[in-house]
Every structure is written in C-alpha cells, then in structure tokens.
C-alpha cells in the first residue's frame, strides 16, 4: 500500500546529477522554484520547460517514472484549475451560462498555474529521485550551518529528520505486516462507512504505535551506548565537498535565472 508511492522515492541509477553535492541540488531546486514564480509569460515557461528537460535528461531517471510520480497531486491540480477558471473575473468573457463565467484571464491563469504546478513538483521530485535521504539531510545540515549563530540547533534538527526518514520505510513495512496479521484474523479495512473504517484502524494503529515507541527507546539507548552527545565536535565520515561539476551547475542555474528575468521583458502578446 505505502510501498507503491513513487513521489519522493530515491531512484538508484548512476548519473552526473546523482553525484552532485546535495547542497547544489537543494539550492538548485530552490532557485528553480523561485524562477517559476518570476516567470509571467509563455517564453519564460518554455525556458523553464527546456531547463527541466535538460536536468531530467542528465539524471537518467526515465520521464515515465517522473510522470507517474505526478499522479498523487492531480487532485491538487484540479482544484487549482477549478478555482482559477471559474473565479477570476475580467475581460473579455469567453463563455457565460447562468452563474458560470469563464474569462480569458481566468483561462490563461488556470493553464499557467497548472503548468507551474507540474514543473514545480517534477523539479522537486527530481531532487528526491536523485538524492538519498541521508545525503539530503547532510546537505541541509551543512547548508544551513550558518543558522547556528542564531542558536538554531541545526545538527539536532538534521539528526531528527534523518531518523524520521530512516523510520518511514521500517514503519511502513511494519504497518504492512500488522495489517496482514489482522487481515489473517478476518479484519477488513476497506469496507463500511467512515466510522466503521476509522474503527477498523484501531487494530492496526495500536500495535504500530507500541512498536514505534519501543523502536524509539531502543534507538535512543543504542545511540547513548555509543556516546552520542549532539553535534559539537562531531566529524563526518564523508565530509561534503564541492567539486568542479557543482560549480558548473551553479553557473548554469545563474544563467538560467538571468534568462528567466530577461524573458519577463519579452512580450509576445499571450
């Protein structure tokens, strides 16, 4: 059930994008998201699309896999399109029937918003497809290290995140086992009304919570037994270091951002 989710799951192939420093990919994703909000016309979106295609091509992740990952957010997209299409007022009106009116600005906004969402999600999904969760938290810890000056416990937050991420597959597998154990005793999870379904979850959640708490105490003990004392003076087994490719990618992103800025000035009437 939980195993079928593709969005955000690491895709294990070797590529230039996979080997990049996680900080580069984090910063790149952030820049890409910002660029999507800067663009305001078709030219900008075309540039964003080409850039995304380039990144996907370099990453060796099959485009089919990325499209599959978009499925869970379809609902969100429909809602956004719905609101933009029917609630934006303006001129000229394209279609009007009783209380339903579709205007040209509304249509334009709905399409651009949907495209923006697709780009945004594919772009950030590409980062998680090409970066292991461990590398990602490492990147965040180092990339946000400057916040320590403001007494933000960066290391602790990163550690909590990586532990949480590490527990997701374990708990998902455990939930799967518990679900099967209860199904073997005749439990049914997908029948009946909302209240019956919520009640059916009790035999699943009780053992899951108990197991999660037990695992958490066990892990805390195991960490203390190995003298864990937080981030001060802690060294890394694989310290993050920028390479030549990282510099190249940063340059490419800056160039891309500049292009997007220029595209704002171009107007071709759509």
């Amino acid at each position: 059930m939980l195993k079928d989710m593709t969005l955000g799951q690491y895709y294990p192939v070797d590529s230039m994008v996979h080997r990049l420093d996680p900080r580069t990919k984090l910063a790149g994703t952030l820049l890409y998201i910002i660029s999507l909000f800067i663009t305001n016309n078709v030219v900008g979106y075309a540039i964003a699309f080409l850039f995304l295609c380039l990144c996907i091509g370099l990453s060796h992740v099959p485009p089919k896999y990325i499209l599959k990952g978009l499925k869970p957010v379809l609902v969100l997209m429909f809602i956004s399109v719905f609101f933009n299409l029917f609630f934006i007022k303006g001129e000229p009106v394209l279609f009007s029937w009783k209380f339903i009116t579709i205007t040209q600005p509304g249509l334009r906004q709905a399409i651009l918003m949907a495209v923006r969402l697709v780009f945004l999600i594919s772009g950030s999904a590409l980062m998680t497809y090409t970066t292991t969760p461990t590398a990602l938290t490492d990147g965040m810890e180092k990339g946000l290290g400057f916040l320590k000056v403001f007494k933000v416990p960066v290391h602790e937050i990163a550690m909590m995140m990586s532990i949480a991420l590490r527990f997701i597959p374990i708990l998902a597998e455990e939930a799967d086992k518990i679900q099967k154990a209860q199904m073997a005793r005749g439990a049914v999870f997908d029948e009946g009304n909302l209240i019956q379904r919520a009640k059916a979850l009790v035999p699943l959640l009780v053992p899951l919570f108990i197991s999660a708490f037990r695992r958490a105490t066990d892990l805390a003990m195991a960490m203390e037994a190995r003298c864990y004392h937080g981030g001060d003076g802690r060294t890394k087994m694989h310290p993050l270091k920028y390479g030549r490719n990282d510099m190249l990618v940063y340059t490419a992103f800056l160039a891309y951002l500049a292009l997007v800025f220029i595209s704002r000035k171009i107007s071709i009437g759509i």
Partner: peptide, 25 residues
Amino acid sequence: MVFQYPEHQLFEETVFEDICFGPRN
C-alpha cells in the same frame, strides 16, 4: 496464519477480548 511476532496482532485491552477478535470478524 500466526505471524512471527505476536506484537503485530495483539491490540485489545484484555487477553480474552483479543482472542475474540477473529471469530467476531
């Protein structure tokens, strides 16, 4: 089917209620 860890299936407040879960289903 009895799974490897009994912790995966026990959830009721009492032993008797837990044994009743299967037949009740």
